[in-house]
Every structure is written in C-alpha cells, then in structure tokens.
Design a protein around this nucleic acid. Structure first.
Lengths: 366, 366
DNA sequence: GCATATTGTGCGAACGTTCTCACAATACAA
DNA sequence: TTGTATTGTGAGAACGTTCGCACAATATGC
C-alpha cells in the first residue's frame, strides 16, 4: 500500500519524521557532514518512506553549482552536432551532470539568446560552437562572470577559453596530397566557405601562398581549403581558381548546384574533394545525375564519414572526424575546469584519419 | 570603460542602486506587478549598469516552475531522435523553455536514472520515449507527483499521459499493399523486432490473424510487422514465415546479416520491406554485396527517409516519418499541459506518407 | 460627496537546501 | 589531570527570487 503523497516531501519533513534537525537530515541525505550510523539509518528510512527527492534547485541556489552544462550547438539535427552532443552527454552523465541544449543555427543573434538563457539558468559551464570567431562579447562576459567555456569545432580569436578542434588543415592537405600522388592534377574542391570577411577566394589563396594568414581562427571549411592550397603548393601545381567550388551556403541543394557547375567545367577535374558530409551528399547527387562513374571518371574523397558512404558502390574514401570523442573531450575539459583547474586555456587538436575505400583511382595519363 | 564586476549582481543590489525596495525592483525586472514608468526606467537603468542577470534557480524555487522540459531519448546520435529533439527544442525555445536531455539507450535502468535526475532538477515536464511499455512505475510516480509526461514513438500500456505516435501499422500495410499491387507475392520484411514477451513470430502472426492482439502498445517494429501481416491477409496471400527477418538487435551489422540470409533464401523474395532506416542501410549493404539489381531483381521499400536514399541509384522508395513535427507536437502537448490543461490524456497520431522513387518495379511474371 | 476600484510601493516571509557556528561528547596524547 | 582533536548534533542564517499582505495615493462610479 504505497503512500499516495501528491506533494513532494522536503528535507524538513524527513527530519521531523526521523526526529532530528533539518541540518542533520541534510547532512545524511546530502552526504556532506558527520552523522552517526544510527541516525543515518533512521533518516534514510524516513526519506524512503516519504519518497523524498532532493530539490537540486535549492541545492544549486546555495552551493552556486547546478551540476548542469549548457551546450550551444549549431543544429542538433545534423549528424555532426548530434554525435558531438552524444559524447558530451555521456561524459556528463557519468559525472552526474545534466546537459541543457540549444541550437544557434549558426546565427549570432540566436547564439546570444541561447547563451543568455543558459547563463540565467545558472549552468556551471558552457560548451559552444561559436558562430562568429570575432564578435564574442557575450562569451567574454560569461567568462568574466566566472562561467567557464569550452569551444569546439572552431575557436574565437583571442578568447581565453579551452577548445577542442580537429586538424582540418593537415587532413585536407594529406587527402589532396594522396590524390596528387595518384596522378591527379586537376582536383576540384567543393566547400561551404561562408563568412570570411577579408576578401574573396583569390585573395585567400594569395594569402595562403604568401603565408600571411593564421589558420587557427578560420572556420573549418576555410581551413580545409587552406590545406588544399598547401598541398598544391607543395607539389608545385598551380591552382586553378575555377576548381574551387564555393557553395556559400549550407544546404544540400546549393552543394548539388555548385558540384554540377564544377563537373561541367570545360576541362573537367579528374578528382573532387568535398569538404564536408553535406557537400559530399550534394556531389554524389550531381555525379549520379551526370552519370559519371566513380572512380574511373572521377575520383572522390570526402570530409566526414557518414554511414551511407560505406555501402555506396563504390564505397567512398573519407576523412573521418572523431565526433563523439570531440564531445567527450570537450566535456572532460569542462569538468576539469569545474573541479578547479586554473591552468591557462588548453587547446586539444584531435587527429583525423583517412579511410581509404573505393572512390579513388589513379588518374589516366593525359 | 565597462564595469568589471566579477560577481553577479542581484535584484537587491539593483534595488539599492535604484533607490527602491527589492520587491519593487523585482516587479519591474520580473514584469509581474505594478510599477510607475518613472521607477521602471530607473530600475532598468540600474540593472543595465550592474549587468544584472536574473537567477532562474531562485525564481524556480519560489514559483515551482523552472521553465525547463526534460527529454529522455533513446540515443540523440541517431537521426531519428535528433530530429525529434530538434522539434522539441524549437518549440521550447519559442516559449522560453530550456531543454534538458538524456539518453536511455533503450535500457530501462538508464531511463530510470534519467527520469530521476530530471525530476530532481525539477523539470516542469517530461518528454519520454519509454523503453518498456509495461514496467513504468517511475513514470506513474512522476505523474502522481504532478510532473506531466508526454510519450513519443511508443506508448506505455495504461499510462494516463499524452502521447504522439505515428501510424506505423497503416503505413506499413499500405506499403506492402502497393508491393502486392505491383505483382509481388514473395515479400520479405526486415525488422528489429526486439522485446515482445508473448512468444515468437509465429504466435504473433497467428494472433494478428485471429485479431486477438491490440497494436497500440506494441513497439513500432512490431506494429509495422502487424501491417505487413494485415496486408497479406487482405490480399489473401499466405505468409511465409521464412520471409520475416527478425534482426533482434538494433545494429547495422545485425541487419546486414539478417538481410543476407533473407536474400539467399531458396525462393528469393522479389521485394523487400525494411522496417526502419537502419534496416534499410543494412539491406542496401547486403544487396550491394550480393550484386542484386534494384529494382529489377529486387524491389525495395524502406521505412524512414534518410538523406542518402534520394541520391542512391536508384533512389529508394520510402515511408517518411514527420520527425521534427513529432517533436514539435510533443512539445506543444507538453506546453499545453503546463499552461493548465486538465483534459484527459490526448493521443496524437501523425500520418505517414510514402515517397515513391525508383526502387520498386512490377514483379516479373513467374 | 462617499464608497470602491485601480495603481503603486515596501516589509517581511516564504521556497528547500547548505553553511556557519556553537556546543557536547568522546577519543587520544602528554 | 589537562589540552586538543575528532565526531556528532542543532539553531539559525544564508542563497536570490516571488508572494502575501498592508497601506497610500489616485481614479472611477453614482
């Protein structure tokens, strides 16, 4: 015959039932002070009987710690963010933390709003994929208010906060190098390449060439283009700007159209490097509709490894990002901060690996 | 010259600076009572100057409302849950609610733990994909404590709580019917079909045939099998149990193996119905490795529409689930409850649509 | 003119915890 | 014995809000 308490029991009621003070009951229930075994038993029994459930709000109010981490992702619906989120959630759960999520859709205004909500909810820390690597007053302010931040995927310029990223530039350089080694000379790249304030593609290429650009605060797709350029430079291959497909938006359709344009070029590229999963999808769509054979007529390497890439025929050679590991790392960095670490900002760069499947062939002699 | 307050300002400090009582400051900042325009202006200015940020913990403690919804998903990493989550998050955000997420991995113990955490964090409501449609004391208890619940994807037997599901049975029946209409007689089904306590596939089929089973509380894959059986019944086609591929686990590899087995059957089926996205992926993998041509040698309809299905060659005919809509609906049901609705439990069933692409052909005359 | 709303303000008590003390009782060392 | 830890307990004040109330001033109804 279970009690049918419709209201929740508080520590005070448990204490009364057990015949001790609220302070004592609090100590045993919260596990933070002395209590004799006898009293412990009595309090626990009372708590059990009343169906006591601690109120973490009240605890948080007084301790100043909510054991909650706020996450600002771009779009949890995407495999990219959802995998990262999973990593964060796993580590958080193991440590008894909750995870509060928000989507920015890569819009600064949304990010602002999200950060504000999370801060008002008194999260202990913020894990953010910042959507602007320059304008970040809100993040600095959060930091100043004592709320630690861990960035992932990209890094705000000069923000003194931990970060987890991936070695985009190097992975891209190596992927391109492997295509070059396979004899390809006309290699196209299909990439998002939104938001770069300092000019057009030509000037970006020029600045990479003259080594007058710092890649750390670039958005991933730009870093991947950076590696693309470097690989060409290293091999002494001149860059044909027509082969750089700047999608300029993050949608399947835009990617498809840009891919179509690249593949219809007079001197069609013999290889294509797609700088992210969505770009790969758009490219495949275009390639299919054009009836091009992979890898005979076109070699393909994609950034991001999505499930379907391994059972497509042929399977697609891809750069795989350790997404859940990225989330786990971010969460660990955060938990480390929360347990008091005062070390200077740490930047973890995860390595990427190229999974060779069947979408790359040697270029035919021209 | 921004203030460099390292501590957070409270309503008390704002009140002091503005020269009013905390009650008055609270009223203007919280927007819940009278205040003259003059005072409003003064308080807002002070708040601005001190960088005041409301503490939602304190507010929640006193109002008993945290404006936070807890979500228990199976695995946010999967496209299924992440899309639903996105829908929930969107609606929640629009109404100023936060979303606290947890993963159950479809394990009851995990779900228990998750629900407990969320309840302790005092969420206003719980949106859950229950992993057991029978054992649900934790959910009933939550309900009794006044925490509303919205279930999605499946429904606990006899739980007086709102629910959003999808018309699995009908969509499946119609998909199968369309295959039958295309002349197929040997149609295989590849489905998860875990957890059903009441016997094996044969007895399930028998009970569907004798109409002695209530589909409402079945897990989706069983409901889809239900529709499969019904469609056969309606067309007067006898069911060959060998064509029912029970994967029994939720993994790509298990699906692939079971698909392989189905497709190697002596009298190979001429059509395959995969009961969910992962099953479809496993099937495609198997079909590819067997070198079977779709749709000429095998017609295929899959439940769930994943991005890659539209650019595979041929594109795959699929039953599309309105996932974000499901999340949005769940959130709306919840918000409705939270704004006081006392109506009896509502059950929203979303309709599914079959997107016909290129993976179905007429069966060749046998 | 008076009764009654409506608007505006402040005091102090909640909310359910943990924290800081004060104080006992016991243990152990010198 | 005395002193000093260590262990155990309770009273009461925090934490940062909102809420109930008291009260004043002004507006509205007739």
């Amino acid at each position: 015959m279970a009690e049918k308490r419709i209201d929740k029991a508080t520590i005070t009621e448990v204490a009364r039932l057990a015949g001790v003070s609220t302070a004592t009951a609090g100590r045993v229930l919260g596990g933070y002070g002395y209590a004799s075994d006898e009293i412990k038993k009595k309090v626990k029994a009372s708590a059990e009987r009343l169906g006591y459930r601690p109120n973490l709000l009240a605890r948080g109010l007084i301790t100043g710690k909510t054991k909650t981490i706020g996450v600002v992702a771009g779009d949890i619906q995407s495999p990219f963010y959802s995998s990262i989120l999973r990593g964060v959630a796993d580590v958080a759960r193991a440590e008894g933390f909750g995870v509060l999520i928000t989507n920015s859709d890569e819009l600064l205004a949304r990010e602002l709003e999200a950060v504000q909500l999370l801060l008002e909810k008194q999260v202990d820390g913020l894990i953010v994929a910042p959507c602007d690597t320059e304008r970040s007053d809100h993040l600095r302010k959060a930091l100043k208010e004592g709320c630690p931040i861990v960035q992932f995927d990209r890094m705000v310029n000069g923000l003194r906060a931990d970060a987890v990223t991936v070695d985009n530039r190097r992975a891209s350089r190596e992927a391109i190098a492997s295509l070059i080694e396979a004899g390809h000379r006309r290699i196209a790249i299909l990439a998002e390449l939104e938001r770069w304030d300092s000019g057009d593609i030509a000037s970006f290429v020029a600045r990479v060439t003259s080594r007058s650009i710092e890649p750390a605060n670039l958005f991933p797709s730009w870093q991947r283009l950076f590696g693309y350029v470097e690989a060409h430079l290293a091999a002494g291959i001149e860059i044909d700007r027509a082969l750089i497909g700047r999608v300029g938006a993050y949608s399947l359709e835009a990617a498809r159209l840009q891919a179509l344009q690249l593949l219809r070029l007079p001197g069609r590229p013999t290889a294509l490097f797609t700088a992210d999963g969505l770009m790969t999808a758009g490219a495949i769509d275009a390639i299919t509709s054009l009836g091009l054979a992979i890898p005979d007529e076109l070699s393909l390497i994609g950034f991001d490894d999505l499930d379907w890439m391994s059972f497509l025929k042929p399977a697609i050679t891809a750069v795989v990002q350790p997404l859940t590991a990225m989330g786990e790392t971010a969460a660990r960095l955060m938990l480390d901060r929360l347990s008091g670490s005062e070390s200077p900002p740490r930047h973890v760069t995860l390595e990427l690996s190229l999974t060779r499947r069947g979408s790359v062939a040697r270029a035919r002699l021209s």
